[in-house]
């Protein structure tokens, strides 16, 4: 394994509400960073309700899980699943038949400590909710990405999560808005990015538009970031750049015109 940076960033991806796109974000950002040559590991901490293996298309390669690592049934190295596409990307699977109380926050911190020397980025896929699973997921992280949708219930939950992260002394909390529909915002039927920032008062990391391609890529087990024709892929790629410290302007969420769509589908750039 070749690590690019001397330090390691441990990032928890969280939201409070379920179904807003945490796992999709983890899969795409980790794949994007691995594509840039970084050593990346993703930890699925949604114990009992695992999804990350499926989203990354690695479900058939799973042998051991994080609970077995913690209980000493296997080594951490043995449990890491290597990605099909990028040799620098690894996944530490969750256990499906166990639950959140089977591990402690201290044990997660220990696992991260063992991973830090070998990786540039460690992503922690946090379960929905604010209970034990959330506490376990944030314990080892240095920074947080809060994922939300432009929808009142998701925003309310995100606000609660941000409050809890601040109480836990997180200094670096960034917002990822997923599934925005520019056409609806323009009609006055959806909260805009500006609205979300006004309510949540945290720095924006990126905006991912609603894209039916995400469902299709999920069906295939291939993160959409690898399909450069899609708008969601472009959005995730921009976030990957920002995570490397490169300044990228936020996408102007113009609705696709007929000609724009045609041009893109024919492969004439974006």
């Amino acid at each position: 394994m070749a690590k690019k940076n001397s330090d390691c960033q441990v990032i928890v991806v969280t939201s409070g509400k379920g179904g807003v796109g945490k796992t999709t974000a983890v899969a795409n950002l980790s794949t994007g960073l691995a594509k840039q040559g970084y050593s990346v590991v993703v930890m699925d901490l949604d114990i009992g309700l695992k999804k990350l293996d499926l989203i990354l298309g690695l479900e058939n390669r799973v042998i051991y899980d994080i609970v077995q690592v913690i209980e000493g049934e296997c080594t951490l190295r043995q449990a890491l699943v290597k990605d099909k596409r990028f040799p620098e990307l690894f996944m530490l699977p969750a256990a499906q038949t166990r639950n959140k109380d089977d591990i402690t926050a201290e044990q997660v911190v220990e696992v991260c400590k063992e991973l830090r020397p070998d990786f540039d980025f460690i992503f922690i896929d946090c379960p929905a909710g604010i209970e034990k699973g959330f506490q376990n997921a944030i314990a080892a992280a240095d920074k947080a990405i809060v994922v939300t949708n432009p929808e009142v219930s998701a925003v309310r939950d995100a606000d609660r999560i941000i409050g809890m992260l601040e109480s836990a002394d997180f200094r670096d909390i960034k917002l990822l808005v997923n599934r925005i529909r520019p056409d609806m915002v323009r009609r006055g039927d959806m909260l805009s990015i500006e609205d979300l920032i006004e309510h949540l008062c945290i720095e924006l990391l990126g905006v991912v538009p609603e894209d039916s391609g995400v469902v299709i890529s999920t069906n295939r087990g291939e993160p959409i970031i690898l399909n450069d024709k899609s708008s969601a892929a472009q959005a995730f790629s921009n976030i990957v750049q920002r995570m490397q410290g490169i300044e990228v302007p936020f996408m102007t969420l113009q609705e696709d015109s007929f000609w724009g769509k045609l041009r893109r589908n024919l492969g004439f750039g974006r």
Partner: peptide, 19 residues
């Protein structure tokens, strides 16, 4: 008023209380 502005008004109240 648009549903967006209703959402903003409701969120403003509920978040202030939640916090």
């Amino acid at each position: 008023p648009s549903s967006r502005s209703r959402a903003n008004d409701r969120l403003r109240v509920v978040l202030t209380h939640d916090r």
